[in-house]
Simulated scan of single mutants.
Amino acid sequence: MREAHVRELIDLLQLERLEDNLFRGQSRDIGTPFVFGGQVLGQALSAAQQTVDPARAAHSLHAYFLRAGDVQAPIVYNVERTRDGGSFSSRRVVAIQHGRPILDGAISFQIEEHGLEHQTAMPAVPMPEELSPLAPIPAEKLAALPEKVQRWLGRDLPIEFREVQPMDRLAPEKRPPAQYIWFRLAAPIEDTPALHRALLAYASDFNLIGTATLPHGISLATHHMQMASLDHALWFHRPFRMDEWLLYACDSPTAQGARGFARGQVFTRDGRLVASSAQEGLIRLRD
């Protein structure tokens, strides 16, 4: 079953090429009110990667979510070949649904080069084998929630998560705005670096902006809360594999004006910093 879920996710990121710079991807309903932002990020990166020399790897992605996506409709990705220089290539990607843009992004690629190196140390946390998988929510509690929330919290994902500090996803206690989560694909996949980067773009949208809700004791199950990603940035630093354990170290330095800001660092289990992320999201409590 896990292998089938992983293959479905990979197929979701394998876009149909309509023209030289035009691609089409399908949508999946995973229980979020609209298309999951990570899906659009991963597909946008997948589209851009198909227009660049394979010797050039994506090193940064910056995107704005302009509109909510329709889970019942495909998404068209228009790639603009902004520049191909001696060392770097730039691409602009616009995701379109029903004739309107839902995401506007810029992605930069670079040839392999060597230079100065340093990195911050990985936080001292337990290894994933020392932690338990996410506990399923009891059926009677899940049944009392709206259908969409049931699908989100009861979903069987192609990605495994193990929280260093587990919390009650229905009634979280207030705590400092930081969390550490191990994650990996639920089954091994082929060694294709471009695919692993697209998969990390997908996974990087999980848990990130939720870090900004931790001091307030709210979650996606809070019935009067509206929550959505506004923008997303992702930097790739070093090689990695998505089917090996990665640590997502997230913190949220501020929330204000119905917006929360969060940062993330992705480490391999041997302590290499392989990626960084940042996101601002809408966190609106309705009367």
Score class of each variant (00 low, 15 high):
P126Y: 13
M127K: 13
M127T: 14
P128K: 03
P128N: 09
P128I: 04
E129T: 12
E129I: 04
L131K: 02
S132F: 11
S132V: 12
S132M: 15
P133M: 11
L134N: 12
L134M: 14
L134A: 10
L134F: 05
L134Q: 14
L134G: 07
A135C: 05
A135S: 14
P136F: 04
I137D: 02
I137P: 01
E140P: 07
E140K: 13
E140R: 12
E140L: 11
K141D: 14
K141Y: 09
K141I: 06
L142K: 10
L142N: 10
A143Q: 14
A143R: 15
A143G: 12
A143W: 10
A144N: 09
A144C: 07
L145N: 02
L145F: 05
L145H: 03
P146T: 12
P146A: 10
P146L: 11
P146S: 11
K148L: 13
K148C: 01
K148F: 01
V149W: 02
Q150V: 06
Q150Y: 06
Q150G: 06
Q150W: 05
Q150S: 07
R151Y: 01
R151H: 10
W152N: 07
W152V: 01
W152T: 02
G154S: 08
G154E: 00
G154Y: 03
R155S: 10
R155F: 08
D156R: 14
I159M: 04
E160L: 13
E160A: 12
R162D: 03
E163W: 10
V164P: 02
Q165C: 04
Q165Y: 07
Q165E: 15
P166F: 09
P166W: 09
M167E: 14
D168Y: 13
L170T: 06
A171W: 10
E173W: 02
E173M: 12
K174P: 05
K174V: 11
R175M: 07
R175T: 09
R175H: 07
P176H: 11
P176D: 15
P177E: 04
P177G: 06
A178K: 06
A178F: 02
A178W: 00
Q179G: 03
Y180T: 03
Y180V: 00
Y180I: 01
Y180W: 13
I181R: 01
I181H: 00
I181M: 00
I181P: 00
F183C: 08
R184N: 08
L185Y: 06
L185F: 09
A187M: 09
A187H: 15
A187N: 08
P188I: 13
P188F: 13
P188H: 13
I189E: 00
E190G: 12
E190Y: 08
E190T: 11
D191W: 08
D191F: 08
D191Y: 08
T192M: 10
T192H: 13
P193A: 07
P193K: 04
L195Y: 07
H196A: 04
H196L: 07
R197L: 06
R197I: 06
A198D: 04
A198E: 01
L199Q: 02
L199K: 03
L200P: 00
L200T: 01
L200E: 01
